[in-house]
Simulated assay, not measured.
Amino acid sequence: MAQLSTITVESRGAIDILTLNRPAQLNSVSPDMIVELTAYFSGLHDRPTTRVVLLRGNGPQFSAGAELGSDAFAAPGKGRPQRQLKMQQNYSGVIRLMRSCPQPIIGLVHGAACGAGFSFLLACDVRFAAPDARMNAAYIRIGVGGCDMGSGYLLPRLVGLSVASEFLLTGHFLKAERAKAIGLVSDIVPAEDLLTKGIELAEDMLRVSPMGLRMTKQALNTLIDAPSLDAALMMEDRQQVILLETNDHAEAVAAFRERRSPTYSDQ
């Protein structure tokens, strides 16, 4: 990966720790950050040795949202609508990549997660929050719609339409206690323990077979929009038949019978 200026990536074995790294700008999401996030998440599709990703922010806030003062959003002149659409698609494209990459993503939020930062969290598979975490769909507070970067799709599926509407229609802040109560975050953890909590869950995920982990994320992505129970069952049946034929399934069964930890080959 090229030299990074807005994010950092630390690899600990099969776990990547991805950090938004513009603390002086409260990790506001600039076009340069979008370029780096796009390259990172695109690369994950062809990097099965990375099995879990932790996403966090450096500094006092997770992310203040999009950097509205950048030329990408402010430059006038001919072709402005086309430039704006391209930039919008670049930003929303990160959400698509986060959901389509085979690795589960664990979001670790502290401080404010606004606008684009909020959407990054919604695109994670699991979220843990520090007590001071607060999140909002800031888009509607700046004269545009509350549904942006996947929020109008992801939030209702995570918390239900009524609660999602409450926050998307107002831009109100969602604080940690309420986020846990409605199931948006799995737990509230002291800020200094967030990374440890994320690594613990990631290590639990590493105890399952690599292909099983990837296919489970894929199935969850698909089944949330399954048209019927029958459609869901048919997909699950086919997934299980594929996984039953892997060497890792045989290894997992043998390890269970022998009361030892399995050694997976991703075969």
Score class of each variant (00 low, 15 high):
residue 142 I to C: 01
residue 56 R to T: 15
residue 216 T to N: 10
residue 150 G to V: 00
residue 35 V to K: 13
residue 11 S to W: 09
residue 137 A to N: 07
residue 195 L to I: 10
residue 16 D to G: 01
residue 238 R to P: 01
residue 57 G to S: 05
residue 176 A to M: 03
residue 78 K to D: 12
residue 229 L to I: 12
residue 141 R to I: 04
residue 42 S to T: 15
residue 52 V to A: 02
residue 56 R to F: 06
residue 187 D to R: 06
residue 170 T to I: 03
residue 210 P to K: 10
residue 114 C to P: 09
residue 79 G to L: 12
residue 215 M to Y: 08
residue 230 D to Y: 07
residue 201 L to P: 06
residue 231 A to E: 08
residue 85 L to H: 13
residue 30 S to V: 04
residue 169 L to H: 06
residue 114 C to R: 14
residue 119 S to P: 04
residue 7 I to G: 03
residue 120 F to V: 00
residue 221 N to A: 13
residue 207 R to H: 05
residue 5 S to V: 11
residue 90 N to P: 04
residue 145 G to M: 14
residue 93 G to T: 06
residue 130 A to Q: 07
residue 108 L to K: 01
residue 240 Q to G: 08
residue 59 G to H: 04
residue 244 L to S: 11
residue 10 E to L: 13
residue 190 P to S: 09
residue 49 T to A: 15
residue 179 A to C: 00
residue 80 R to H: 05
residue 6 T to P: 04
residue 134 R to P: 03
residue 43 G to M: 03
residue 162 S to L: 11
residue 60 P to I: 00
residue 46 D to A: 12
residue 34 I to M: 02
residue 16 D to L: 08
residue 85 L to T: 14
residue 257 R to K: 15
residue 93 G to D: 06
residue 242 I to E: 04
residue 39 A to S: 13
residue 218 Q to C: 10
residue 199 I to E: 13
residue 168 L to T: 01
residue 138 A to N: 11
residue 264 Y to I: 01
residue 260 R to M: 03
residue 12 R to C: 05
residue 52 V to M: 09
residue 8 T to N: 09
residue 180 K to H: 10
residue 160 G to R: 04
residue 117 G to D: 08
residue 44 L to Y: 06
residue 188 I to H: 05
residue 57 G to Y: 02
residue 211 M to L: 14
residue 228 S to C: 08
residue 98 M to F: 06
residue 199 I to T: 12
residue 26 L to V: 11
residue 73 F to Q: 09
residue 171 G to L: 00
